[in-house]
Simulated assay, not measured.
Amino acid sequence: MTKIPEILCIGSVLWDVIGRSASPMRLGSDVPGRIARIPGGVAMNIAMTLTRFDLVPALLTAIGKDEEGQELLATATRIGMITDHIYLSDDLPTDIYMAVEGANGLIAAIADAHSLEAAGDKILRPLADGTLGNVQAPYPGLVALDGNLTETLLEDISQNPLFAAADLRVAPASPGKAERLNPLLKHPRATFYVNLEEAGYLCQRDFGSTAEAALALVKRGAFRAMVSDGGNMAALGDKETLLTAQPPEVMVSRVTGAGDTFMAAHIAAEHRGETGTTALESALTAAAHYVSGETPL
């Protein structure tokens, strides 16, 4: 019996290759550490966190039919995700992300999401062909969308009737891709999850606080805006309210995927009925557990 998804995760699903060292690093550093290959990508990170909160996510993405892709599919299915709707490509390789982290944070990263970009709107076919919805009856539930899609496709999604009824949750893939999300400011039901730097790119200005950034994003058209800033105050704003909360203090042992974990934890908190500051604090606690290394990969 096919499971019914509680949320769709649309975007990058790939392998993360992460090198971590306990030493501070700079350009040209050569230090001992550990290298791991784990499932990753914004959509995948969000989906993995959602499964830890007993939600059933479905992935809409592009994966190659290569050995790496088959292994990734098997892993996602084993974790508890619905993989039936993934676009499987005969000629595109499975995407990959590579990062180096030191004691002083992320040193450098390269995201190769070219296959996802090349697949384009093929990944959205289940939303149009009646599998998950169609124009007459668009998908009515939660949708987590990431900024690894092309600007053209994100522009289409912002106006596409297939997303008219969705509770859309939007995350940039990185500060460098944040401006791709500008078209989605038009969507009447989109909640943005960004960090302070990404908010600055979206608004083309610097902000002194997350509260200021959240209000600016709402003024630019966002239905809701959640802005984080590492261990500093986080803010959630809409046209009527502004909430802030301080993350718990923890020792940081990893950073890749922290923002995705925060977003997914907030979605899960609201899904189980939490609201306002309670949901925000639940998300910050989950993100703190993740960056401290308490949450297993």
Rank of each mutant, 00 (worst) to 15 (best):
T83F: 04
E294N: 10
L145Q: 01
E197V: 15
T150D: 07
I123A: 02
A279L: 06
E270D: 11
F163V: 06
G133Q: 03
A47Q: 03
L168E: 02
A62F: 01
R254D: 07
S89E: 04
L168G: 02
G208A: 12
E197I: 15
D66S: 01
A111Q: 04
I82C: 04
A268E: 03
A166P: 04
G28Y: 08
E117A: 13
H187G: 05
N182W: 09
V42N: 07
G237D: 02
R37V: 12
L14P: 00
I86K: 02
S209E: 07
F207A: 05
E151A: 14
A118R: 01
A245Q: 07
A137Y: 11
G64Y: 01
H85R: 11
E240W: 09
N104V: 10
H85P: 04
V252Q: 09
G200D: 05
N232S: 12
N104E: 11
I123Y: 01
M25I: 15
D238W: 05
A216H: 06
Y139S: 02
E101T: 08
I86S: 02
P172Q: 08
N148A: 10
E6L: 06
P138C: 11
G259L: 05
K122G: 08
E71S: 15
H266E: 14
R20K: 14
Q70E: 15
M48A: 12
E281W: 05
G41P: 03
G28P: 06
D90W: 09
P5Y: 03
P188A: 10
S228Q: 07
S89Q: 04
T49H: 08
M263F: 09
L168K: 00
T75W: 15
V170N: 01
D16P: 05
A119V: 10
A245N: 07
P172Y: 05
G276W: 07
L116T: 03
A119E: 04
Y87H: 14
I79P: 00
S209K: 05
A234C: 12
P140R: 09
E67L: 13
Q70L: 15
D167K: 14
E281Y: 04
V135S: 10
D260G: 06
S29C: 11
M25L: 15
A211Q: 12
E294D: 13
T275V: 15
D95I: 03
Y139V: 02
M98H: 03
I46V: 15
S115G: 10
V17Y: 12
H289L: 12
H114F: 07
N45S: 11
I96N: 08
N45K: 09
V170A: 05
R224C: 12
H271C: 11
V42M: 08
G141Q: 06
A288S: 14
G200A: 08
R272N: 13
A119S: 12
L154V: 09
D229A: 14
A111H: 04
Y139Q: 04
E274D: 15
E6K: 08
A119W: 00
L14A: 13
V13P: 00
S292N: 11
A119N: 04
D129G: 11
L217C: 06
G208N: 12
D260R: 06
G259W: 01
G141E: 06
F192D: 00
P57F: 03
K177T: 09
L55G: 03
F262N: 00
T150C: 10
V227D: 02
G41R: 01
S209W: 06
D84E: 13
N182S: 13
L116A: 08
R272I: 15
R254E: 10
T191K: 06
T261A: 13
A108N: 13
A265G: 06
F53N: 09
A109Y: 05
K3E: 13
